[in-house]
Design a protein around this nucleic acid. Structure first.
Lengths: 183, 183
DNA sequence: TCCATGTGAGACATGGGTGTCGCATATGAG
DNA sequence: CTCATATGCGACACCCATGTCTCACATGGA
């Protein structure tokens, strides 16, 4: 009888990832509940988006845990991060877009922790001599987000094959476009 | 007396880049004209966005011309592209976001010509042996857009210094994160 | 069985943006 | 100067999403 809040959030996330402009009514229909019930669980659209943001943060945190960012070779860790976050890419893209759309220039507190986890990985790579030091960890973190999101959209638009997505993203971020001597 | 259409579009572009959710009234105020006059020049918000898209395409075309994409070393040409498009980055980010928001999965015809110009540059680099061939030109093109936009947002948010923006973007795209032997 | 809780359906008011119109006014060309 | 054109201002209706409410119904536990 009662609605599973987590499942409701997942459904909303899926729908909004595909159609970012979906209304509360659309979301309710997708979850097979009435709009009234949706409002009973989330005070309003604002509250729903906030909850989705928290969901995204939890998922991203879990993905970073699974990627074991502080273990082994830094480059391999970056590859694992990309592989683990790839299923979240579309959803994260929605959150970033939503954020950029309604409060450009501001940054939510919840993301700083995630940023720091990723930034720490790049710093580790720099300390160990595997990564170049003339690119700031903050910029590398931004670039990682951008490439993961771009990859998801490119797959969605059919410009990149889904099976190549992770490799393309990782290889570009790690090695760049220029042909290198090593590897 | 008469309104300069180009100047009006530029003003709208500036405002929407800063505040993507601006209403027609906001745009009219920013251009110091009445909302009625704005509607006399553009049938509606839809038409205005379309016109802004055309403006973006023209500016991007001009930037690619200025970058002389088919001259000299391919890597240098990529650097020039980034340098020339950097002033447009925020505006292009708005267009991409708007597009992704209202018609995800679709691609506008006008962009394919631009895509092909950039893609051709990457292909040239691959043919000349300067660029690696295991990353498709289509993906590299997407990545270029993503990094330029991300760079603009990072600057806007204060996470990257404006003076480092072009270098950071170009260096990451060309060389990647991994420390390389050359250079 | 009885009752509390949660849900569905629909109605309702509200707010904000949009699109259109009429009318007064200012500008520039002839 | 005269007139056509373009603009400003305000009003109006319209649409859509949102938020709230009521009432009836279903479910599950005591």
């Amino acid at each position: 009888m009662s609605v599973d809040r987590e499942e409701l959030l997942s459904t909303a996330a899926d729908l909004l990832t595909r159609r970012p402009t979906s209304s509360m009514d659309d979301i309710a229909k997708a979850a097979r509940i009435s709009r009234a019930t949706l409002h009973r669980h989330f005070a309003g659209r604002e509250a729903l988006i906030r909850a989705l943001e928290q969901l995204g943060l939890r998922r991203l945190d879990a993905a970073l845990d699974a990627a074991r960012t502080d273990e082994g070779d830094a480059a391999d860790a970056v590859r694992r991060v990309i592989a683990e976050t790839e299923p979240l890419a579309g959803f994260l893209g929605f959150l970033v877009t939503e954020n950029q759309l309604f409060e450009p220039g501001e940054q939510h507190a919840g993301w700083t922790r995630i940023d720091e986890r990723i930034s720490a990985l790049f710093q580790r790579g720099q300390r160990q001599g595997a990564f170049r030091i003339d690119l700031s960890p903050a910029w590398l973190t931004e670039a990682l987000y951008a490439l993961i999101t771009a990859s998801a959209w490119a797959v969605q638009d059919g410009r990149v094959a889904a099976r190549d997505s992770v490799r393309m993203t990782a290889e570009l971020l790690l090695g760049g476009v220029r042909r290198s001597v090593e590897e």
